[in-house]
Amino acid sequence: MPMHGPARGASDMVPFAACFPFEDIRIMALEHADVLRAAHLARLGLSEDDAAHYLDDLGRILEMVDQLQALDTEGVAPLAHPLDATQRLRADEVTETDQRDRFQRCAPAVEQGLYLVPRVVE
């Protein structure tokens, strides 16, 4: 992997964009279709124009993110939890009472305890 950045422990590392000399590292350029695909996966309504607008922002964010590629992480275990803790299990006991009416009070549309949505099956 090419090292474009300052070496580990270099004393001249500085915080701003100007000091990120990694700009030529692009693992994959973002395309218009990628934005539409992400919007679809996220169920986020986006017009073609919106997508064009986000393409520029997201492209620059990913360009910044691509600086990670300059770092050799071979053999480093991913860290998912800052204390390296694993998910705790609890006894398989009922602890919640039925509060349906209370929780449905903030729903946009309910009827007889059911959430109303547009017809799904014709």
Binding site: V65, L68, L71, A77, P78, L79
Partner: peptide, 17 residues
């Protein structure tokens, strides 16, 4: 994209910690 981004970032996260 998962390995190139998310997994990589989590590895870097360990180095930062």
């Amino acid at each position: 994209f998962f390995d190139a981004y998310y997994k990589k970032a989590q590895q870097v996260r360990r180095l930062i910690r």
